[in-house]
Nucleic acid binder design. Structure first.
Length: 424
RNA sequence: GGGGGAGUGUCCCGAGCGGCAAAGGGGGCGGACUGUAAAUCCGCUGGCUAAGCCUUCGUAGGUUCGAGUCCUACCUCCCCCA
Protein backbone atom coordinates (compact mmCIF):
# COMPACT_ATOMS: atom_id res chain seq x y z
CA UNK A 1 0.00 0.00 0.00
CA UNK A 2 2.88 2.31 0.75
CA UNK A 3 4.83 0.88 -2.18
CA UNK A 4 8.23 2.42 -2.39
CA UNK A 5 7.38 5.67 -0.69
CA UNK A 6 10.21 6.81 1.57
CA UNK A 7 8.81 8.73 4.50
CA UNK A 8 10.77 11.61 5.94
CA UNK A 9 8.73 11.89 9.09
CA UNK A 10 9.24 9.63 12.05
CA UNK A 11 5.50 9.21 12.36
CA UNK A 12 4.95 7.67 8.94
CA UNK A 13 8.20 5.80 9.02
CA UNK A 14 7.26 4.01 12.23
CA UNK A 15 3.74 3.30 11.05
CA UNK A 16 4.84 1.86 7.75
CA UNK A 17 7.67 -0.18 9.25
CA UNK A 18 5.42 -1.69 11.83
CA UNK A 19 2.61 -2.58 9.49
CA UNK A 20 -0.01 -0.08 10.55
CA UNK A 21 -0.72 1.39 7.15
CA UNK A 22 -3.24 0.12 4.65
CA UNK A 23 -4.15 3.21 2.69
CA UNK A 24 -3.43 6.92 2.78
CA UNK A 25 -5.04 9.71 0.79
CA UNK A 26 -1.72 11.47 0.24
CA UNK A 27 1.46 9.99 1.65
CA UNK A 28 3.74 12.81 0.59
CA UNK A 29 1.47 15.57 1.82
CA UNK A 30 0.88 13.91 5.15
CA UNK A 31 4.55 13.10 5.51
CA UNK A 32 5.46 16.76 5.10
CA UNK A 33 2.93 17.79 7.73
CA UNK A 34 4.10 15.17 10.17
CA UNK A 35 7.68 16.21 9.65
CA UNK A 36 6.83 19.80 10.39
CA UNK A 37 5.54 18.65 13.76
CA UNK A 38 2.38 19.23 15.74
CA UNK A 39 0.26 17.03 13.52
CA UNK A 40 -3.19 16.62 15.02
CA UNK A 41 -5.12 13.49 14.15
CA UNK A 42 -8.16 11.71 15.44
CA UNK A 43 -9.82 8.34 15.53
CA UNK A 44 -13.43 7.84 16.46
CA UNK A 45 -14.61 5.10 18.79
CA UNK A 46 -18.18 4.04 19.05
CA UNK A 47 -19.57 3.50 22.51
CA UNK A 48 -21.20 0.20 21.74
CA UNK A 49 -19.58 -1.77 24.55
CA UNK A 50 -18.50 -1.03 28.12
CA UNK A 51 -14.85 -1.39 27.18
CA UNK A 52 -12.69 -1.72 24.12
CA UNK A 53 -11.25 -5.03 23.07
CA UNK A 54 -8.25 -6.23 21.16
CA UNK A 55 -9.98 -5.42 17.90
CA UNK A 56 -9.51 -1.72 18.62
CA UNK A 57 -5.93 -2.05 19.73
CA UNK A 58 -4.44 -1.19 16.36
CA UNK A 59 -6.32 2.08 16.41
CA UNK A 60 -5.25 2.84 19.94
CA UNK A 61 -1.65 2.13 19.04
CA UNK A 62 -1.92 4.48 16.07
CA UNK A 63 -2.81 7.31 18.40
CA UNK A 64 -0.09 6.30 20.79
CA UNK A 65 2.56 6.33 18.08
CA UNK A 66 1.29 9.66 16.87
CA UNK A 67 1.87 11.09 20.30
CA UNK A 68 5.25 9.43 20.67
CA UNK A 69 6.41 10.92 17.42
CA UNK A 70 5.40 14.42 18.35
CA UNK A 71 1.81 14.59 17.17
CA UNK A 72 -1.33 15.42 19.04
CA UNK A 73 -3.89 12.62 19.25
CA UNK A 74 -7.59 13.10 19.67
CA UNK A 75 -9.69 10.21 20.87
CA UNK A 76 -13.18 10.95 19.73
CA UNK A 77 -15.92 9.29 21.70
CA UNK A 78 -18.88 8.62 19.49
CA UNK A 79 -21.43 9.64 22.08
CA UNK A 80 -23.56 11.08 19.31
CA UNK A 81 -22.86 8.76 16.39
CA UNK A 82 -23.38 5.67 18.50
CA UNK A 83 -26.98 6.75 18.72
CA UNK A 84 -27.14 6.28 14.96
CA UNK A 85 -25.01 3.19 14.36
CA UNK A 86 -22.35 2.71 11.71
CA UNK A 87 -23.41 0.32 8.95
CA UNK A 88 -19.84 -0.04 7.61
CA UNK A 89 -18.78 -3.63 7.42
CA UNK A 90 -21.87 -4.93 9.10
CA UNK A 91 -24.41 -6.97 7.30
CA UNK A 92 -27.29 -6.06 9.49
CA UNK A 93 -28.29 -3.12 11.57
CA UNK A 94 -27.36 -3.01 15.15
CA UNK A 95 -30.02 -2.53 17.71
CA UNK A 96 -30.45 0.94 19.03
CA UNK A 97 -28.58 1.53 22.23
CA UNK A 98 -30.09 3.56 25.03
CA UNK A 99 -28.58 6.86 26.06
CA UNK A 100 -27.75 5.58 29.51
CA UNK A 101 -25.88 2.62 28.09
CA UNK A 102 -23.95 4.81 25.70
CA UNK A 103 -22.95 7.10 28.53
CA UNK A 104 -21.85 4.19 30.73
CA UNK A 105 -19.90 2.65 27.87
CA UNK A 106 -18.20 5.95 27.22
CA UNK A 107 -16.90 6.08 30.77
CA UNK A 108 -15.48 2.59 30.45
CA UNK A 109 -13.77 3.39 27.18
CA UNK A 110 -12.24 6.57 28.56
CA UNK A 111 -10.52 4.56 31.25
CA UNK A 112 -8.75 2.48 28.63
CA UNK A 113 -7.35 5.52 26.88
CA UNK A 114 -5.79 6.89 30.00
CA UNK A 115 -3.44 3.93 29.87
CA UNK A 116 -2.25 4.53 26.34
CA UNK A 117 -2.23 8.26 25.92
CA UNK A 118 -0.90 11.16 27.93
CA UNK A 119 -3.68 13.63 28.42
CA UNK A 120 -1.35 15.97 30.20
CA UNK A 121 -3.27 15.72 33.44
CA UNK A 122 -0.25 15.07 35.62
CA UNK A 123 2.10 17.51 33.99
CA UNK A 124 0.27 20.47 32.50
CA UNK A 125 3.55 21.75 31.13
CA UNK A 126 3.83 18.98 28.59
CA UNK A 127 0.67 20.15 26.92
CA UNK A 128 1.98 20.81 23.41
CA UNK A 129 1.01 17.34 22.36
CA UNK A 130 -1.18 16.31 25.25
CA UNK A 131 -3.88 14.01 23.99
CA UNK A 132 -7.41 15.31 23.81
CA UNK A 133 -10.65 13.53 24.38
CA UNK A 134 -13.74 14.82 22.66
CA UNK A 135 -17.28 13.57 22.42
CA UNK A 136 -19.21 14.22 19.26
CA UNK A 137 -22.49 14.40 21.14
CA UNK A 138 -21.20 17.85 22.04
CA UNK A 139 -21.89 19.14 18.55
CA UNK A 140 -24.11 16.48 17.02
CA UNK A 141 -26.55 16.67 19.89
CA UNK A 142 -27.26 20.31 19.23
CA UNK A 143 -27.81 20.02 15.50
CA UNK A 144 -30.95 21.38 14.02
CA UNK A 145 -32.22 19.15 11.26
CA UNK A 146 -33.05 21.75 8.67
CA UNK A 147 -29.94 23.79 9.33
CA UNK A 148 -27.85 20.69 9.02
CA UNK A 149 -29.45 19.73 5.75
CA UNK A 150 -28.99 23.20 4.31
CA UNK A 151 -25.44 23.77 5.47
CA UNK A 152 -23.98 20.30 5.40
CA UNK A 153 -26.42 17.99 3.70
CA UNK A 154 -26.38 19.90 0.43
CA UNK A 155 -22.74 18.91 -0.02
CA UNK A 156 -23.43 15.23 0.02
CA UNK A 157 -24.23 13.45 -3.18
CA UNK A 158 -26.64 10.61 -2.72
CA UNK A 159 -25.39 9.21 -6.01
CA UNK A 160 -21.95 8.91 -4.54
CA UNK A 161 -23.15 7.63 -1.22
CA UNK A 162 -24.98 4.83 -2.96
CA UNK A 163 -21.76 3.83 -4.61
CA UNK A 164 -19.89 3.44 -1.32
CA UNK A 165 -18.97 -0.10 -0.42
CA UNK A 166 -20.68 -0.01 2.92
CA UNK A 167 -23.95 1.01 1.32
CA UNK A 168 -23.59 -1.00 -1.85
CA UNK A 169 -23.05 -4.16 0.11
CA UNK A 170 -26.34 -3.79 1.89
CA UNK A 171 -28.21 -2.90 -1.26
CA UNK A 172 -26.77 -5.75 -3.28
CA UNK A 173 -27.59 -8.28 -0.64
CA UNK A 174 -31.04 -6.89 -0.21
CA UNK A 175 -30.35 -6.23 3.40
CA UNK A 176 -32.16 -3.45 5.12
CA UNK A 177 -30.29 -0.19 5.42
CA UNK A 178 -32.31 2.29 7.36
CA UNK A 179 -32.27 5.99 6.63
CA UNK A 180 -30.87 6.43 10.11
CA UNK A 181 -27.78 4.37 9.32
CA UNK A 182 -27.50 5.89 5.88
CA UNK A 183 -26.82 9.19 7.62
CA UNK A 184 -23.94 7.84 9.65
CA UNK A 185 -21.26 8.77 7.17
CA UNK A 186 -22.57 12.31 6.93
CA UNK A 187 -22.26 12.71 10.66
CA UNK A 188 -18.81 11.22 10.67
CA UNK A 189 -17.75 13.55 7.87
CA UNK A 190 -19.15 16.43 9.84
CA UNK A 191 -17.16 15.32 12.89
CA UNK A 192 -13.98 15.65 10.91
CA UNK A 193 -14.80 19.17 9.83
CA UNK A 194 -15.84 20.08 13.34
CA UNK A 195 -12.59 18.74 14.79
CA UNK A 196 -10.69 20.70 12.21
CA UNK A 197 -12.50 23.82 13.31
CA UNK A 198 -12.08 23.17 17.01
CA UNK A 199 -8.68 21.53 17.20
CA UNK A 200 -7.05 22.11 13.82
CA UNK A 201 -7.24 18.41 13.25
CA UNK A 202 -6.17 17.49 9.72
CA UNK A 203 -5.99 13.72 9.77
CA UNK A 204 -8.49 11.03 10.48
CA UNK A 205 -7.30 7.50 10.96
CA UNK A 206 -9.23 4.27 11.33
CA UNK A 207 -9.57 0.70 10.19
CA UNK A 208 -9.73 0.00 6.48
CA UNK A 209 -13.49 -0.37 6.70
CA UNK A 210 -13.61 3.32 7.58
CA UNK A 211 -11.98 4.47 4.37
CA UNK A 212 -15.22 5.50 2.73
CA UNK A 213 -16.43 7.39 5.75
CA UNK A 214 -13.12 9.18 6.16
CA UNK A 215 -12.90 10.17 2.51
CA UNK A 216 -16.39 11.58 2.77
CA UNK A 217 -15.01 13.82 5.49
CA UNK A 218 -12.21 14.98 3.22
CA UNK A 219 -14.69 15.91 0.53
CA UNK A 220 -16.90 17.76 2.92
CA UNK A 221 -13.91 19.64 4.25
CA UNK A 222 -12.90 20.73 0.78
CA UNK A 223 -16.35 22.06 0.09
CA UNK A 224 -16.50 23.88 3.38
CA UNK A 225 -13.03 25.33 3.01
CA UNK A 226 -11.12 23.57 5.74
CA UNK A 227 -8.05 23.24 3.61
CA UNK A 228 -6.57 19.87 2.82
CA UNK A 229 -7.51 17.03 5.14
CA UNK A 230 -5.93 13.59 5.17
CA UNK A 231 -7.02 10.00 5.56
CA UNK A 232 -4.99 7.05 6.75
CA UNK A 233 -6.30 3.58 7.41
CA UNK A 234 -4.87 0.50 9.04
CA UNK A 235 -5.30 -3.01 7.68
CA UNK A 236 -8.16 -5.08 8.92
CA UNK A 237 -6.47 -7.59 11.13
CA UNK A 238 -7.17 -11.25 11.18
CA UNK A 239 -5.15 -14.07 12.62
CA UNK A 240 -3.10 -16.15 10.23
CA UNK A 241 -5.94 -18.63 9.94
CA UNK A 242 -8.39 -15.90 9.11
CA UNK A 243 -10.26 -15.39 12.36
CA UNK A 244 -11.17 -11.91 13.46
CA UNK A 245 -8.88 -10.43 16.07
CA UNK A 246 -10.13 -10.14 19.56
CA UNK A 247 -12.86 -12.72 19.51
CA UNK A 248 -12.62 -16.03 21.24
CA UNK A 249 -15.25 -18.54 22.14
CA UNK A 250 -15.30 -17.17 25.66
CA UNK A 251 -16.08 -13.76 24.26
CA UNK A 252 -14.22 -10.65 23.32
CA UNK A 253 -10.69 -10.09 24.53
CA UNK A 254 -11.42 -7.03 26.62
CA UNK A 255 -8.85 -4.48 27.60
CA UNK A 256 -10.44 -4.02 31.00
CA UNK A 257 -9.16 -6.24 33.78
CA UNK A 258 -12.62 -6.31 35.31
CA UNK A 259 -14.01 -7.88 32.16
CA UNK A 260 -11.12 -10.18 31.37
CA UNK A 261 -8.59 -11.29 33.98
CA UNK A 262 -5.04 -10.18 33.26
CA UNK A 263 -3.95 -13.81 33.23
CA UNK A 264 -6.40 -14.55 30.42
CA UNK A 265 -5.27 -11.49 28.51
CA UNK A 266 -1.70 -12.66 28.75
CA UNK A 267 -2.77 -16.13 27.63
CA UNK A 268 -4.56 -14.71 24.62
CA UNK A 269 -1.27 -13.43 23.23
CA UNK A 270 0.72 -16.40 24.43
CA UNK A 271 -1.53 -18.66 22.38
CA UNK A 272 -1.28 -16.81 19.10
CA UNK A 273 -0.31 -18.72 16.01
CA UNK A 274 3.34 -19.05 15.06
CA UNK A 275 2.84 -17.13 11.87
CA UNK A 276 1.40 -14.14 13.71
CA UNK A 277 4.13 -13.53 16.25
CA UNK A 278 6.26 -11.13 14.25
CA UNK A 279 3.34 -9.13 12.94
CA UNK A 280 1.82 -8.85 16.40
CA UNK A 281 5.09 -7.87 18.04
CA UNK A 282 5.36 -4.96 15.63
CA UNK A 283 1.80 -3.83 16.09
CA UNK A 284 1.13 -4.47 19.73
CA UNK A 285 4.43 -3.88 21.46
CA UNK A 286 6.95 -1.10 21.28
CA UNK A 287 10.01 -3.29 21.16
CA UNK A 288 12.68 -2.10 18.72
CA UNK A 289 12.39 -3.71 15.32
CA UNK A 290 15.83 -5.30 15.64
CA UNK A 291 14.66 -7.18 18.73
CA UNK A 292 11.51 -8.24 16.97
CA UNK A 293 13.46 -9.49 13.97
CA UNK A 294 15.53 -11.62 16.31
CA UNK A 295 12.49 -13.07 18.07
CA UNK A 296 10.69 -13.66 14.83
CA UNK A 297 13.57 -15.69 13.51
CA UNK A 298 13.27 -18.28 16.26
CA UNK A 299 12.23 -21.58 14.83
CA UNK A 300 10.37 -24.61 16.07
CA UNK A 301 9.55 -24.71 19.75
CA UNK A 302 11.79 -21.71 20.38
CA UNK A 303 9.15 -19.45 18.92
CA UNK A 304 7.44 -19.92 22.25
CA UNK A 305 9.98 -17.55 23.75
CA UNK A 306 8.84 -14.92 21.29
CA UNK A 307 5.24 -15.56 22.25
CA UNK A 308 6.04 -15.05 25.90
CA UNK A 309 7.69 -11.76 25.12
CA UNK A 310 4.70 -10.74 23.03
CA UNK A 311 2.30 -11.68 25.81
CA UNK A 312 4.21 -9.88 28.51
CA UNK A 313 4.86 -6.73 26.49
CA UNK A 314 1.32 -6.50 25.17
CA UNK A 315 -0.07 -7.09 28.64
CA UNK A 316 2.23 -4.51 30.20
CA UNK A 317 0.91 -1.94 27.76
CA UNK A 318 -2.63 -2.29 29.03
CA UNK A 319 -2.37 -3.55 32.57
CA UNK A 320 1.04 -2.33 33.63
CA UNK A 321 4.40 -3.98 33.97
CA UNK A 322 3.76 -5.46 37.41
CA UNK A 323 0.52 -7.16 36.43
CA UNK A 324 2.11 -8.46 33.24
CA UNK A 325 4.99 -9.96 35.18
CA UNK A 326 2.77 -11.71 37.63
CA UNK A 327 0.62 -13.08 34.81
CA UNK A 328 3.77 -14.31 33.15
CA UNK A 329 4.95 -15.88 36.39
CA UNK A 330 1.58 -17.47 37.03
CA UNK A 331 1.71 -19.00 33.57
CA UNK A 332 5.22 -20.27 34.16
CA UNK A 333 4.25 -21.95 37.42
CA UNK A 334 1.08 -23.37 35.95
CA UNK A 335 2.36 -24.65 32.63
CA UNK A 336 6.02 -25.26 33.19
CA UNK A 337 5.98 -26.52 36.76
CA UNK A 338 2.44 -27.75 37.05
CA UNK A 339 2.32 -25.91 40.34
CA UNK A 340 -0.49 -23.96 41.91
CA UNK A 341 0.02 -20.32 41.04
CA UNK A 342 -1.46 -17.66 43.26
CA UNK A 343 -2.18 -15.30 40.42
CA UNK A 344 -4.54 -17.44 38.41
CA UNK A 345 -8.04 -16.08 37.91
CA UNK A 346 -10.10 -16.96 40.96
CA UNK A 347 -13.61 -17.18 42.26
CA UNK A 348 -14.31 -16.67 45.92
CA UNK A 349 -16.46 -19.12 47.73
CA UNK A 350 -17.52 -19.21 51.38
CA UNK A 351 -15.28 -21.51 53.37
CA UNK A 352 -18.34 -23.14 54.90
CA UNK A 353 -19.54 -24.30 51.48
CA UNK A 354 -16.31 -26.17 50.91
CA UNK A 355 -16.13 -27.61 54.38
CA UNK A 356 -19.67 -28.85 54.05
CA UNK A 357 -18.63 -30.65 50.89
CA UNK A 358 -19.23 -29.25 47.44
CA UNK A 359 -20.21 -31.35 44.46
CA UNK A 360 -17.35 -31.37 41.99
CA UNK A 361 -19.62 -30.67 39.04
CA UNK A 362 -21.24 -27.76 40.79
CA UNK A 363 -17.82 -26.40 41.67
CA UNK A 364 -16.84 -26.18 38.01
CA UNK A 365 -20.06 -24.38 37.27
CA UNK A 366 -19.42 -21.89 40.06
CA UNK A 367 -15.92 -21.34 38.77
CA UNK A 368 -17.42 -20.41 35.43
CA UNK A 369 -15.44 -23.03 33.56
CA UNK A 370 -18.55 -24.79 32.35
CA UNK A 371 -22.02 -23.45 31.76
CA UNK A 372 -24.02 -26.22 33.38
CA UNK A 373 -23.64 -29.42 35.29
CA UNK A 374 -24.66 -31.18 32.11
CA UNK A 375 -21.66 -29.75 30.33
CA UNK A 376 -19.52 -30.66 33.32
CA UNK A 377 -20.70 -34.26 33.05
CA UNK A 378 -19.78 -34.37 29.40
CA UNK A 379 -16.37 -32.94 30.12
CA UNK A 380 -15.83 -35.59 32.76
CA UNK A 381 -16.60 -38.26 30.17
CA UNK A 382 -14.08 -36.72 27.83
CA UNK A 383 -11.49 -36.42 30.56
CA UNK A 384 -11.43 -32.64 30.37
CA UNK A 385 -11.79 -31.68 34.02
CA UNK A 386 -9.13 -31.70 36.70
CA UNK A 387 -9.13 -30.84 40.38
CA UNK A 388 -5.71 -29.90 41.69
CA UNK A 389 -4.31 -31.46 38.52
CA UNK A 390 -6.03 -34.80 39.18
CA UNK A 391 -8.32 -35.80 36.34
CA UNK A 392 -11.87 -36.03 37.56
CA UNK A 393 -13.41 -39.36 36.71
CA UNK A 394 -16.32 -39.63 39.12
CA UNK A 395 -19.26 -37.35 38.48
CA UNK A 396 -20.32 -37.64 42.07
CA UNK A 397 -16.99 -36.66 43.57
CA UNK A 398 -17.08 -34.04 46.28
CA UNK A 399 -14.66 -31.27 47.05
CA UNK A 400 -13.94 -30.88 50.74
CA UNK A 401 -11.64 -29.08 53.11
CA UNK A 402 -8.99 -31.67 52.36
CA UNK A 403 -8.67 -30.41 48.81
CA UNK A 404 -7.71 -26.94 49.93
CA UNK A 405 -4.18 -26.01 49.10
CA UNK A 406 -3.12 -22.77 50.75
CA UNK A 407 -6.80 -21.92 50.92
CA UNK A 408 -7.56 -22.69 47.29
CA UNK A 409 -8.64 -25.52 45.05
CA UNK A 410 -7.38 -25.43 41.49
CA UNK A 411 -9.97 -26.35 38.90
CA UNK A 412 -8.91 -26.88 35.32
CA UNK A 413 -10.76 -27.31 32.07
CA UNK A 414 -8.56 -28.73 29.42
CA UNK A 415 -4.91 -27.82 29.53
CA UNK A 416 -5.22 -24.11 29.38
CA UNK A 417 -8.07 -22.87 31.47
CA UNK A 418 -7.54 -22.73 35.20
CA UNK A 419 -9.52 -21.09 37.96
CA UNK A 420 -8.85 -21.10 41.66
CA UNK A 421 -11.71 -21.61 44.02
CA UNK A 422 -10.62 -19.48 46.91
CA UNK A 423 -12.14 -20.13 50.32
CA UNK A 424 -13.05 -16.97 52.17
C1' G B 1 -53.06 -3.28 -2.30
C1' G B 2 -52.77 -8.50 -5.11
C1' G B 3 -49.98 -13.30 -5.71
C1' G B 4 -46.02 -16.66 -4.02
C1' G B 5 -42.26 -18.33 -0.40
C1' A B 6 -39.86 -18.58 4.32
C1' G B 7 -39.12 -18.38 9.82
C1' U B 8 -36.05 -25.27 13.12
C1' G B 9 -31.82 -27.04 18.56
C1' U B 10 -30.97 -18.67 21.30
C1' C B 11 -23.49 -19.20 17.56
C1' C B 12 -24.44 -19.88 12.21
C1' C B 13 -26.15 -22.73 7.92
C1' G B 14 -29.63 -26.47 7.29
C1' A B 15 -32.73 -31.61 6.70
C1' G B 16 -37.15 -32.92 8.92
C1' C B 17 -43.60 -39.60 6.49
C1' G B 18 -48.19 -37.03 12.77
C1' G B 19 -44.24 -40.66 17.66
C1' C B 20 -38.60 -35.94 17.69
C1' A B 21 -34.43 -33.89 22.26
C1' A B 22 -35.19 -33.57 16.24
C1' A B 23 -30.37 -35.78 10.22
C1' G B 24 -26.07 -33.21 8.32
C1' G B 25 -22.47 -29.32 8.08
C1' G B 26 -19.67 -25.04 9.97
C1' G B 27 -18.07 -23.05 14.42
C1' G B 28 -16.91 -24.19 19.44
C1' C B 29 -15.27 -27.35 23.56
C1' G B 30 -12.65 -31.76 25.22
C1' G B 31 -9.13 -35.91 24.11
C1' A B 32 -4.74 -37.92 21.21
C1' C B 33 -0.27 -36.07 18.68
C1' U B 34 2.86 -31.56 19.62
C1' G B 35 5.77 -26.66 21.44
C1' U B 36 0.20 -23.70 25.81
C1' A B 37 1.35 -23.31 17.64
C1' A B 38 -0.64 -25.04 12.94
C1' A B 39 -2.33 -29.41 10.45
C1' U B 40 -4.53 -34.22 11.41
C1' C B 41 -7.51 -37.97 13.94
C1' C B 42 -11.33 -39.21 17.84
C1' G B 43 -15.37 -37.71 21.19
C1' C B 44 -18.93 -34.05 22.74
C1' U B 45 -21.99 -29.83 21.43
C1' G B 46 -30.92 -28.40 25.44
C1' G B 47 -31.73 -28.17 31.27
C1' C B 48 -32.29 -30.83 35.92
C1' U B 49 -32.12 -33.13 42.39
C1' A B 50 -30.36 -37.55 35.64
C1' A B 51 -31.64 -45.25 33.51
C1' G B 52 -36.43 -40.62 35.33
C1' C B 53 -38.30 -35.69 34.72
C1' C B 54 -38.68 -30.73 32.38
C1' U B 55 -38.23 -27.05 28.33
C1' U B 56 -37.25 -26.39 22.81
C1' C B 57 -38.85 -25.76 16.00
C1' G B 58 -41.67 -17.12 14.71
C1' U B 59 -46.41 -15.95 18.30
C1' A B 60 -51.27 -17.43 20.08
C1' G B 61 -55.04 -20.81 19.70
C1' G B 62 -57.22 -25.54 17.56
C1' U B 63 -57.54 -30.86 15.62
C1' U B 64 -55.28 -35.48 17.67
C1' C B 65 -53.84 -40.67 22.36
C1' G B 66 -49.72 -37.82 20.37
C1' A B 67 -47.84 -31.81 16.38
C1' G B 68 -41.61 -29.10 14.22
C1' U B 69 -44.89 -31.80 11.00
C1' C B 70 -52.21 -30.81 10.00
C1' C B 71 -55.95 -26.32 10.67
C1' U B 72 -56.92 -20.93 12.10
C1' A B 73 -55.35 -16.09 13.29
C1' C B 74 -51.34 -12.91 14.04
C1' C B 75 -46.06 -11.14 13.69
C1' U B 76 -41.50 -10.75 10.86
C1' C B 77 -38.62 -11.34 6.41
C1' C B 78 -37.96 -12.31 1.12
C1' C B 79 -39.70 -12.66 -4.16
C1' C B 80 -43.18 -11.33 -8.17
C1' C B 81 -47.26 -8.05 -9.81
C1' A B 82 -49.56 -2.91 -8.84
Amino acid sequence: MSDDFQPQSEFLRVLIERGFVHQCSDFAGLDALAKAGGLTAYIGFDCTAPSLHVGSLVQIMLLRWLQKTGGRPIALMGGGTTRVGDPSGKDESRKLISLETIEANKQGIKRIFSKFLDFGEDAPSSCACAAIMQDNSEWLGALNYIDFLREIGRHFSVNRMLAMDSVKMRLERDQELSFLEFNYMCLQAYDFVELHKRQSCVLQMGGSDQWGNIITGLDLGRRLGTGQLYALTSPLLTTASGAKMGKTAQGAVWLDAGMLPVFDYWQYWRNCEDRDVGRFLKLFTELPLEDIARLEALGGAEINEAKKVLATEATAMVHGRAAASSASEAARQTFEEGALAEDLPFVEIPRGDIEAGLGALAAFVRAGLVASTGEARRQVKGGGLRINDQTLTDERAMIGAGDLNEGSVKLSLGKKRHVLLRAV
